[in-house]
Design a binder for these strands. Structure first.
Lengths: 345, 345
DNA sequence: ATGAAAGCGCTAACAA
DNA sequence: TTGTTAGCGCTTTCAT
């Protein structure tokens, strides 16, 4: 028995022949387009079912639509991102769109490569989560394809934007810690070298919000920011540095829960206890913050809602590319758990 | 100023015209195909750069290749999966392939929908992580597109398979706990209703490995399995049930770290302490297991290696679809931390 | 080594 | 309402 060639895929032509109609009719039926009689629709639908026909996206893509939405995530390890994805996907449930994720793993697949790859694949729409591209690049992309940006603090006429009020969130933490009596409150930020980006990226806005809140509480001389990345390793190494200070902070505010996890490890290894020896707060209120023995004080930024908002905006933009752009800012909420307490006496 | 139409994308024809050559020549250059003089290559490359040309995947897809590999993940929240993705993507680094992720979020976007969507989008290859499709479905898919399956304990002539020896991993935990003196060791499994699938799914194999190991240690009458899902919520509710038993277990073996996190929360809420009151072990050795205050005893199954192996196999299969299929089984490793200790006296 | 031209499977403009 | 047909941007014979 010789190897059987993989059976050719069923095309619109097969369906048309099987139903004794034109390919146009079939095309109209699968697109729910205007101008098909009920009888025609029924015949075609029957043929489609019988033959198990599914349109090839590449062919449709040649004519404009791929029914695919691309999502760019900077990092799959940060447990906050799945919340966004979840809200996004759920909002799209019931539509014809399929969400595909591209991820620029910590740099060894640069963001622009992923974004370009998504464009080259003819996405009908794109969502970029905390992109580090320049404004010009973002606008350029947005002129090519309907786009929503999550996390960047910039208004653009070309794309919609959904952000959390990161400055407020940071202030919530600083005020909470200051109210508890802390003065030496350190912050761990995700490094941002580009000065232009710094005013727009969520990580930088949190850091700046921290500084401002510290000043507002009269703690200007206590401002202490360590730059690393929003990863466990980043939090770990940053905490090591902080714990080695001659006078170590009584509280650490990590800009992301994922970094706070690394901080916890470093604190534990140093033989210290949270919150007796040192207080710790995170950001994002990921599910891991709620885990029993951790009980991390954090800031909730409703990732699912952010994702859902982004999806709704993207659908609108796909429907009308020229509609005025929206800028949605959601309010964060402080979630106090057991990692924050008054400083040791 | 009227709204400017989005500039038409640069095509191969533009490049050909700009370089004064045929489109064939351009095509050959971008594919590194045989039969291009150095001079020709240089001219074309220059034109491509100058015009910023990038081929449209849809058009290439019409002729066979999309340079895209689809990855189906069952759940983005399980922190073990990013490890696999990471290894996979890194192995593909330097090739022309782009990895795109489809995810079937906890069922509200069923697995088959995602798989079909990836096929319809003309993926050059696919990786399915812990798919729940029937063998027949998997084989059918594999006849359509080069495919690697991660996690299923079945040999197939049509696709390659990469698995962890889950039975051994489960035994490592049971033996470890039994050696510590535990007898009432409960297991939390990810439910599998289909009896046929049960012998193939990693979750079921872990549960069966647990049972076998218990019997081998003479603990047959202590076998206690709670079925939920490998999620935090699943672990949480399962633990609640276990802690309400008239005689509660002295140790819990959660089939996944993510479930163990929920168990920790339940234990904490019950006012119990780990490992003094009760021991806990997980599986996957995710990064969260290592976090300081947790220190979860777990089983390492080298997700990055699994991902890398899968990628290597997939590349081979794309190059030669008829090559004999491989079945790679990796050995798990016990990682003892601080959540396991002898049972209370 | 190079180029002309057919065609992949759809959609949409136009005819009937 | 229904069908005919011209492409979309590539790749790939097949000539030259």
């Amino acid at each position: 028995m010789e190897p059987v060639a993989p059976p050719r895929r069923v095309t619109i032509i097969d369906v048309a022949a099987h139903a004794n109609v034109s390919t146009t009719a079939v095309s109209k039926v699968i697109r729910n387009a205007y101008g098909v009689s009920p009888a025609m629709r029924e015949r075609v639908t029957a043929a489609i079912t019988e033959l198990g026909y599914r349109p090839r996206t590449a062919a449709r893509g040649m004519r404009g639509q791929t029914y695919t939405i691309g999502m760019m995530l900077p990092d799959l390890r940060n447990p906050f991102f799945p919340d966004i994805v979840d809200g996004f996907v759920q909002q799209l449930d019931g539509t014809d769109y399929q969400v595909l994720l591209g991820t620029s793993f910590c740099g060894h697949e640069p963001e622009s490569r992923v974004t370009d790859a998504l464009i080259d694949r003819g996405m009908d729409g794109m969502v970029l989560v905390a992109p580090t591209a320049t404004r010009a690049q973002l606008n350029h992309t947005a002129e090519t394809v309907p786009m929503v940006v999550i996390g960047r603090h910039t208004r653009s006429a070309h794309h919609d934007t959904v952000v959390d009020d990161d400055a407020l969130g940071a202030a919530l933490i600083v005020d909470h810690l200051a109210d508890l009596g802390h003065r030496r409150i350190a912050h761990i930020e995700h490094r941002e070298n580009d000065a232009t980006l710094a005013v727009e990226m969520p990580n930088s806005v949190r850091a700046e919000g921290y500084r401002r809140a510290m000043r507002a509480r009269g703690l200007t001389d206590q401002i202490d920011v360590v730059s690393t990345s929003y990863t466990e390793e980043g939090g770990y190494s940053a905490a090591q540095r902080l714990l080695n200070r001659s006078t170590r902070p009584t509280a650490i505010f990590a800009g992301a829960d994922i970094a706070a996890m690394g901080v916890l490890t470093a604190i534990t290894e140093a033989g210290l206890t949270v919150p007796d020896d040192i207080s710790l707060a995170g950001y994002d209120n990921t599910r891991f913050a709620a885990v029993g023995p951790i009980g991390l004080t954090s800031v909730d930024q409703a990732g699912r809602q952010i994702g859902a908002d982004a999806a709704a905006l993207l659908l609108q933009r796909i429907a009308d590319r020229d509609r005025a752009s929206a800028f949605v800012s959601t309010s964060p909420r402080l979630v106090v758990r057991r990692t924050t307490a008054p400083p040791p006496a």
